[in-house]
Design a protein around this nucleic acid. Structure first.
Lengths: 222, 222, 222, 222
DNA sequence: AATGAATGAGTATTCATTCAT
DNA sequence: CATGAATGAATACTCATTCAT
């Protein structure tokens, strides 16, 4: 006899079965992003999604599963898009590299997905499986794509012959830092943080540096 | 896990016997580094230091105070050193920049201090005061030093005229990523991760790119 | 897990379609028998019956009501049968006692109803009303019947003059233990547990002991 | 700053390290006995012992571990005692059997240990390991001892040749039922329940029955 | 100074029950 | 009738912090 909701005019809930998982993931991303993984209570996530605690468990068996689902549904698709860009490309690769960075910059500057790598990094010690999954599905694949791009540039003489996996990390580092900055420290900034501008400068300096090094090397050989 | 702390009024840690606090901080760094802030139990830290839980509280009033002390004692001195390098420098700045990165690279590759920014980043949402403190004492000061260096390069015509604060972030980004990588994902690497090499490549590409852009600009002006 | 129930005011279950309640009770008995009362989820019961959770509530207002209905529908009828046997009996009572034990033995050895007393015993602390109901409807009535039987034996000189209520408990004890054994520990037995055999031995020893004691007493008196 | 107990005159606690586990087990037995395993909250047990929840976990890692410890510390020693009685015995076994039952009767009538088998029986489905442990350490050993006793009686001609394991169960059944009755249904009794008397009658009828059957068999053979 | 027993607030998870469809 | 999405009370267990010794 403990459930006596006041007689509402509106239904207490509506069937949302199909939309729910996605809404919950949005809510979880927002909550994790605000508080970090450990400090995010399931109830916070639920409230953010406009449901109650129990409902979350109808869709995800555990908190960890939510984080896993976030990685899978929010990051992997972005890599699919980058892969498609690579597949369809011909000609000099530096412009493509800039374009990719530009595209990524927009996401990093505006969406919450940057919170996901931040979470995974922070919790890698506690959830080795998630770290391993992220490493495989996101990092290895992402650096693989960038390395492939870079190799094409080396082959065409645009870029110098540096270990592509290391270059891939150098390509992505400022992107991550920009994103982390935005969600972590930008609140203390006097003026709005320009993530996109930062990444554009990065792309400029990087491609120019690579071209210059390639030219140096060509000259040295001749 | 939400322990809202009193604001920074009292000293962040007490010095009793001289060696103890430092040993405890080493232990804490190791423990935080392994498990993250939230998952590191005071008892873990104590055991790592070879004492019992209660003893930790003789030296630090709270878990948060330990993190604060870590920032103060482990990061700030490094900045002092960089500042000294800057103060004593004359002539072209690119070599100094490389030297600084080289120096930092060694620490990042070998010591555990990289865990500190990682912790601060991860916990910024939960401990705004620590984030603010870190922002002020480490980031602002660090980027300030790098910006000062960069401005010298711009003044001498070595570097192009880009916002020095943004360049400072680009200088440091790969360093952070290298460090984070080492303590987070390197365990999954087939071969040993070469943080120092990565940072050396970074220094190379960055300084070459900056020089080239400066030359481009000079040419455009003429 | 504490659902303090309204007292027995309303009917303990409703009859809609005729077959459903019985199927649900079968399913509930099976589920309670496997997991115990507390650990049996309504969903388990529903699934066992091939319906969904909500359906169970169409027939029974609560989990407790299911247990009550089990007691009423599965145990009480057996007592009706025993009563009928007593009503129709003439002559020496020892054979009737054996026959009753034999009849009961078959049920205990084969059906799941033994789970019901087991449940009631286990949950008596939490559901005093069920315990009281069971006590009244099953135990008092059952021991009453056996005591009546025993008194007839005492009157005819077959049995010694012992408190019939105590003898009733002694008659039934091995039956309960056999049943509990079967559903609780028999799974660990190397060879199949012979509940019927145990009860047959019990009947043998008990009736022989009673007869001998009666003879002893008669001899003492003479 | 969350722990500000009012300045007590008395110490908030006293070191009880050695006594605690035993006190906690007493409290747990009482609590389990009142409410059953599932319904007993750790906090109930703690309060019963005069400590708080957390303290219980200093001594037992889980609720299940408490139940295991109860079996080990409260039942096994009783079996040791019975074994000692057997070891030191010579002559006819029927008196020893009566003596053992008498001894056990006292415990069953007065102590709470009967709650332990009741718990194990109720929770066997949920904690197969505990059931298996109990089966091995208590049941198998207990019936083993009784079977050994019975075999001696068969050898000496006191008892008829019935499967000793079955007889062991028949010996013990009324003891268990008496105990279960006392803690489960006796509260509804009009007059005080006489567990010891019940077991004494049981011993009487049982030994008389066995002797009579042995005599019958001897006669049949001759 | 150091210990470690005790505390108790905090949280993930479960599941009986409700009710819109 | 039947479904199953949603609810929210309840509880085992964790761990930062305190403090008698």
């Amino acid at each position: 006899m403990r459930y006596r909701p006041a007689p509402f005019a509106e239904p207490r809930w509506r069937r949302r079965k199909d939309a729910r998982p996605c809404e919950l993931l949005d809510a979880a991303l927002k909550t994790f992003s605000d508080k970090g993984y450990a400090a995010a209570r399931m109830e916070d996530i639920a409230r953010q999604a406009g449901v109650t605690k129990g409902t979350v468990y109808l869709y995800f068996p555990s908190k960890q599963a939510i984080l896993e689902a976030l990685v899978e549904t929010r990051l992997v698709p972005n890599l699919d898009r980058v892969e498609a860009m690579l597949d369809g490309h011909h000609g000099p690769v530096a412009p493509l590299l800039k374009q990719i960075l530009e595209t990524v910059a927009v996401r990093v500057a505006e969406s919450d997905i940057i919170a996901i790598p931040k979470l995974v990094i922070a919790e890698a010690g506690n959830f080795p499986e998630i770290a391993a999954f992220y490493r495989r599905q996101v990092i290895d694949r992402g650096t693989g794509l960038l390395a492939r791009l870079y190799r094409a540039g080396v082959a065409s003489g645009e870029f110098p012959d540096i270990d592509p996996d290391q270059v891939a990390k150098l390509i992505i580092a400022p992107v991550l830092i920009a994103g982390i900055w935005r969600v972590t420290f930008a609140r203390f900034d006097a003026e709005a943080f320009d993530a996109a501008g930062l990444i554009r400068h990065h792309a400029e300096i990087l491609t120019r540096g690579l071209r210059a090094l390639a030219a140096d090397a060509a000259e040295a050989r001749s």
